[in-house]
């Protein structure tokens, strides 16, 4: 029974999932802004948070899907930023967040350890290649399936047969690759850049590339709606946009 208690607490969303990192907000910020953001935004958002003046930004990074589930269970951050348009749109339809706004784009790429000999999609289906990819519920996993769906059936089966782990978010995939546990995975270009030289990017051919869009929304019932709006505005132009660009994100289309 004792072990089930933390699980139950998790299920009831008493606490934010994933790593919490406190950003040092600007001096002017007495207000505390809570931002639930996709794991892949961690580097860019912590950078932005340190320069964000209207409030002290605190972040909860996890898979966009896990964060959406928390909001459904009554957790109320001020801002929700996801790696896909679908999750915020669904929350918007359910009346849980305000109108979602696209604020960045990213590229899905093949990520391999820096010293890997893999150099293309064709290698992913080779026998003995261990792949770690995102679980289907997480945006990175949904995009991965989009890519696989565009492969010829035989090749798709070969790649799927090599999948050894479905990770809940991008940091799981990054960890498996940097530890040498997996030979390749599908990640965002920014994750590879954030891994600081330990991983290498192999671009997907343009016909396979999914459109990766990051979307943010003010959460209904937010304690700091004004600061939340300012935070999202800054993502579109200003220090947030600059931080996103430094981390390798592109403008939304």
């Amino acid at each position: 029974m004792r072990i089930a208690a933390p699980l139950a607490a998790l299920a009831l969303s008493a606490a934010p999932l994933g790593g919490c990192a406190g950003g040092d907000g600007g001096e002017g910020g007495n207000a505390r802004l809570t931002v639930s953001a996709a794991q892949s935004l961690q580097g860019a958002f912590e950078d932005y948070g340190a320069r964000f003046d209207p409030a002290t930004a605190r972040f909860s990074f996890a898979g966009s899907d896990a964060l959406a589930a928390q909001i459904r269970q009554g957790v109320r951050p001020d801002v929700y930023a996801a790696a896909s348009p679908e999750l915020p749109r669904r929350l918007f339809r359910e009346g849980l967040v305000e109108e979602p706004i696209e604020f960045a784009g990213n590229r899905l790429v093949i990520a391999v350890p820096a010293d890997s000999t893999i150099d293309g999609v064709a290698d992913l289906g080779r026998e003995g290649t261990a792949l770690a990819v995102g679980a289907e519920t997480a945006p990175v996993g949904a995009y991965t399936r989009e890519v696989l769906g565009r492969l010829p059936a035989a090749q798709r089966r070969a790649v799927l047969a090599n999948v050894r782990s479905l990770e809940p978010d991008v940091s799981g995939v990054v960890g498996k690759l940097t530890q040498g546990a997996a030979d390749a995975g599908l990640l965002y270009a920014t994750d590879v850049q954030g891994a600081g030289g330990r991983l290498r990017t192999i671009e997907l051919p343009s016909r396979l590339r999914p459109r990766v869009t990051y979307v943010a929304a003010v959460v209904k019932g937010a304690k700091e709606p004004t600061a939340a709006r300012a935070f999202i505005d800054g993502l579109l132009s200003g220090p947030g946009r600059a931080a996103l660009r430094r981390a390798g994100f592109v403008a939304p289309r």
């Binding site: 699980l7 998790l10 299920a11 898979g63 899907d65 896990a66 959406a68 589930a69 459904r72 269970q73 770690a132 679980a135 519920t137 997480a138 999948v163 050894r164 782990s165 479905l166 990770e167 809940p168 498996k176 546990a181």
Partner: peptide, 23 residues
């Protein structure tokens, strides 16, 4: 060990995976 149905996905990992999709 990672998380893959039938191989490494134990009940707590399966719970976590369902948390986001099917509460």
């Amino acid at each position: 060990a990672g998380s893959l149905g039938g191989v490494t996905q134990t009940a707590p990992l399966a719970i976590y995976e369902r948390l986001s999709g099917d509460f």
